[in-house]
Design a protein around this nucleic acid. Structure first.
Length: 404
DNA sequence: AAGTCGGGGGA
DNA sequence: TCCCCAGACTT
């Protein structure tokens, strides 16, 4: 076959391709409960359940769901707790809430029957491009693409498509390719055949090209580059960084803020003083707090830091702590934890709240300043600082004007 | 465009 | 542990 090297297929080649796929599907298709007929309600429910969920998991859920809610009307009228019970363990619970919203839409707008126009289908809550295409093609025999992860994998191999499937816009490229090649007479079977092929033959890691009905048409197979496709960039996981935040008030009710240096993340911005600690230390403080929380003799965060063996703690921080320990009175209980994800970093911030010790003025560093809460508005706070301030309000360490 | 939402299975 | 799976919605 020379077909595989062609980027565009002739009409005849396209027909042969469709035939190969459909013939394979006829003999190899999986027998699944939602394939007993093409009732739009059953197809709809199955497609929603199958989003990010494997077939074997879905089957028992599907059967029970059909018993409990046998029609669109039954779904529309179902009590929410019953609905959630039916979904318990499936995950992505907004799926079932959206489905009921859509069921009500269908009852009021379409007399209780699934609309047939693709644009009407995809306007329903929880039905996106994939599911709309699946329903339109399976139930109403419209040549609509239903592009999911499987289809992108198969087509990227068929045509050696290098576009990054992690990017949202790439889906349109594949939809275009499917529109060019979908069977006009059996679009539903065609789409379902792709799903089965992706699940059982054209698998992510070790595709079974020797039994694949499309091998003769497959560019990647011809080049022996099956596992180079699909191209998917994986973004590096944000590196965790751990901080203690020193939330200190003086007798005038002002808070100590510190300006970050001109290098690195959030350069020049103002936050509560943040001191980086190791992961081990951070965990130690969290655990220490939790285990002490029952007893009356709960330590302050800085007691725990002082107990630290030093190996998990930077010396400079310990020295600074000695000063703060003597000049500030720390609360026994933690304020709480704040996390924030940057593109490359994930900050974990444990907040400790304290007060300047009476009669001993805190010695401020060059980049530190006392600031009244009323003046916070004059600062452009970075997101982590905003989250910390919000947490202080929540814990009534900061009082909003309306409360007072 | 990126973050969020769950849980199970396989490498 | 990490990635993947019949994705869609929100910000």
């Amino acid at each position: 076959m020379t077909v595989s090297r062609m980027r565009e297929w002739t009409e005849e080649q396209t027909c042969l391709f469709q035939e190969s796929l459909l013939n394979w599907y006829q003999t190899e298709q999986r027998l699944l409960p939602w394939r007993e007929n093409t009732d739009p309600y059953r197809v709809w429910v199955s497609e929603i359940m199958l989003q990010q969920t494997q077939v074997a998991t879905v089957i028992p859920y599907f059967l029970r769901f059909m018993e409990w809610f046998p029609s669109i009307q039954a779904l529309a009228e179902a009590p929410e707790d019953r609905l959630l019970k039916a979904w318990e363990g499936l995950g992505y619970y907004s799926r079932v809430r959206n489905m009921q919203t859509a069921a009500k839409q269908i009852m009021t707008d379409y007399g209780g029957k699934m609309p047939k126009r693709p644009e009407d289908i995809s306007a329903l809550k929880g039905i996106g491009p994939y599911t709309a295409g699946a329903i339109a093609s399976i139930c109403f025999h419209l040549p609509e693409p239903a592009v999911d992860g499987n289809v992108m994998r198969i087509y990227s191999r068929l045509f050696s498509i290098c576009d990054d499937i992690a990017q949202a816009k790439t889906r349109k490229i594949f939809e275009g390719k499917v529109r060019q090649t979908i069977s006009p007479t059996q679009p539903g079977d065609f789409n379902q055949a792709l799903m089965d092929l992706g699940a059982t033959v054209c698998t992510p890691t070790s595709p079974k090209c020797d039994i694949c009905p499309l091998a003769a048409y497959c560019s990647a197979h011809h080049a022996g580059r099956m596992t180079d496709y699909p191209v998917k960039t994986k973004k590096p996981k944000p590196v965790p960084v751990y901080y203690l935040a020193q939330v200190i008030q003086n007798s005038r009710g002002e808070f100590l803020l510190e300006q970050r240096n001109s290098q690195g993340v959030l350069s020049g911005m103002w936050t509560f003083p943040l001191r980086e600690v190791t992961k081990a230390a951070y965990r130690c403080y969290l655990d220490g707090w939790r285990s002490y929380q029952q007893s009356k003799e709960a330590p302050t965060l800085f007691d725990l830091v002082a107990e630290d063996d030093g190996e998990t703690q930077a010396n400079a921080f310990l020295e600074e702590l000695a000063v703060f320990g003597s000049q500030a009175v720390w609360q026994k209980q933690p304020v709480g934890e704040v996390t924030h994800i940057f593109s490359h970093l994930k900050w974990f911030i444990l907040l400790a709240s304290g007060f300047e010790r009476a009669g001993s003025e805190l010695t401020l560093k060059e980049n530190q300043r006392w600031v009244a809460p009323e003046d916070f508005a004059a600062f452009v706070f970075p997101k982590p600082q905003q989250k910390m301030v919000a947490l202080l309000y929540k814990n009534n360490i900061l009082k909003s004007v309306s409360d007072s």
